[in-house]
Design a binder for these strands. Sequence first.
DNA 1: AATGAATGAGAGTTCATTCAT
DNA 2: TATGAATGAACTCTCATTCAT
Lengths: 222, 222, 222, 222
Amino acid sequence: MKERARRKAQRPGEILEAAFDAFAERGFAATRMEDVAARAGVTKGAIYFYFPTKERLFEEMVDHYSRDMLADAGAMLASAQGGSAEKLRAFLEFMYGRCARDRYGREIIRLMVSDGKSFPQLVERHHRDFFAPAMRMVSELLAAGAASGEFRPEVAKHGAEIVVAPSVFLTLMRLIFGGSLELNEDAYIVCHIELLLNGLLTPSGRANLSPAKACGEDRSPI
Amino acid sequence: MKERARRKAQRPGEILEAAFDAFAERGFAATRMEDVAARAGVTKGAIYFYFPTKERLFEEMVDHYSRDMLADAGAMLASAQGGSAEKLRAFLEFMYGRCARDRYGREIIRLMVSDGKSFPQLVERHHRDFFAPAMRMVSELLAAGAASGEFRPEVAKHGAEIVVAPSVFLTLMRLIFGGSLELNEDAYIVCHIELLLNGLLTPSGRANLSPAKACGEDRSPI
Amino acid sequence: MKERARRKAQRPGEILEAAFDAFAERGFAATRMEDVAARAGVTKGAIYFYFPTKERLFEEMVDHYSRDMLADAGAMLASAQGGSAEKLRAFLEFMYGRCARDRYGREIIRLMVSDGKSFPQLVERHHRDFFAPAMRMVSELLAAGAASGEFRPEVAKHGAEIVVAPSVFLTLMRLIFGGSLELNEDAYIVCHIELLLNGLLTPSGRANLSPAKACGEDRSPI
Amino acid sequence: MKERARRKAQRPGEILEAAFDAFAERGFAATRMEDVAARAGVTKGAIYFYFPTKERLFEEMVDHYSRDMLADAGAMLASAQGGSAEKLRAFLEFMYGRCARDRYGREIIRLMVSDGKSFPQLVERHHRDFFAPAMRMVSELLAAGAASGEFRPEVAKHGAEIVVAPSVFLTLMRLIFGGSLELNEDAYIVCHIELLLNGLLTPSGRANLSPAKACGEDRSPI
DNA sequence: AATGAATGAGAGTTCATTCAT
DNA sequence: TATGAATGAACTCTCATTCAT
């Protein structure tokens, strides 16, 4: 039977999948190799044929499931149409899809939080290959929007972080409160983008606040 | 000797402090009772005099360090002066102080993420006693602002989450990237509030976007 | 009860004794910590309270049981009476007692042979602290005997090794063939010393051989 | 292909060679079948085609490398020329060559010491087929020498062991101290034979000792 | 109140052995 | 013949927990 050959080719992937489930469920330390093995339908020993230690299994699993994130982000941005606002919306929707909605992205973030200290190279890699470039993308988007007159230029420095924060916030709430968090994600996203683009203040609220030097940066009244 | 009596009264607190440090450092599963004991300057056995199991020690520690958060939040809001925008700013500064800047708040969040699944009552309690009330406070603040004409009313439903998200985002980045995250927190907060209140769009950007039904909700042009 | 205190003080020694028995029986690799524990009447975990690893247990055991050998050898020599021949006989009897007859000395030699490659410092220590000094003692004894006219001076260079060899040979036979080696040790020793002192040749055999340059070194006929 | 056939015929020998290297390096217990396989340039499974268990592989390897020793010893003795002393010298040189100098003989002795207890038939075989006959040969040689008046007759009982001891002693030192044992083997052998044949005492030393009944056996003064 | 020696149930890892290919 | 993926038992070491002192 080709059965054997087929299994062999698939085993590493199956083990990584099982490892993802197990580690996401309980974290690195509390997960036993036997848990992973059972989920993968093999015995403990078989895992060691493919991965030399629990640490390496963890690292390779995280790498495996974070590999395409950045690539996808780049591809997404490249294909975005329209003005800066449209592009920004597209990027945010990507973030929601990849971090908040997608179980893989979400749980990888959990593992970064819970076990990142034990895997500093992993964290560094994520900073270098995903977080920093993503923030840079957003910053460039904001700058381009400012240059074209669409966006207000004041948000240069930390705008990127503020802009994506709600998607990460939603992710975190899902991680902590799980299924008990009832929330209409679509409405949440709409609200996020609406608030982001238009701000909280009414014209009159703005008028009241502006003379009092609202937010640190000098700004011409609207 | 009074010394002995004083030590005795302080022991539980010292152990909780040590437990916080230890659990924050490595998470629940990877922390050994002996780590906690060593940090507290006692032996393993002593801990069991005050706390019957590792689980209970963890729970009581988390309770201990999250107890005042809600109280502080309530007190803070009650004492806030000025219009809704001022109150909102005060609340956000409280959030930054309690979650992002304060090591205790930050690490408790880490533990919620990493070990919350094993302590569902803890998570529930946090949801009931801290997260939900805090969100309610913000929602009420936004509603009051809308009623008084300061805030735009469109953000009723999910505004609270969006509004606080950047402080939680900063917290999470600190948890994951630790000291290697260089960031001027003051400037970040200023940017957050500025962007929150005034939005990203310039008047012309707004004009371009509005006819195209910018953000899902119908809205009178500004 | 003082039982506990008494046990506590004796435990390390009991474990070392058990470790000696177990390692001597099966060698380092084939001995399980559980074997040692069972012989010592404790559980596996208890051993780790006193010795951090199997390797360290092994090393400390070997150290423990070889510590007095050199000291004893020195004391013995210092107290030896009579001429050089008497002293030599005393030394050889010490060797037989310590290496061949004594189970501890014998089995330590076995462990040097079987596991010395894995514990090079141990081997070095034995060379530096036991083997080399012992050989030196014998060499000095031979030199003193030669100076006093008792011993033939030709054996300067390797005489020490040749002189002690039969005791080590007996040790090795005991290690390999164990109880099945039937041998009158006393007669063996007598024969050893007799042959050592007087040589194998008769005067006539000597006469036949001498002119033919018997053994490399030039030597006046007796 | 002839190549394949030739390889096939050589495989068992290659595996035995690899097994010798591996077992000699680390002993039976610490050697893994995979070590042997790697040295032999095959995979684990291939070994099991030729040898059913690790134990059998070990036994056959030891047999393989000790088979010719006795035959060689017999052949050597048969071809020895000259008087008893010459024959004895020839035998001793054979011993040095086979035990001390030859890596195979030396390491087989190591394995007898380290793992003999687990392979009692192996040890018995060695005793029956090598050690006992060799000792018998030497005994007969000594008896013949005594009969011909070359050798002193007093050494009948244990002379053989004493006579060969230095070669085994050298072997053991090499096994334990390895390359760090600096020693001129030729000079060592010369010294051994010289001392063996002529003894340690000078005529005057002998005179002093004799009246005191030096070595147990009554003996006419030289 | 506190100690710390001891337990015992695992945890990660190794490896002789098997067997479908 | 030979491979190498897979098993499963065993091994070293860990650690929450207990308890005599």
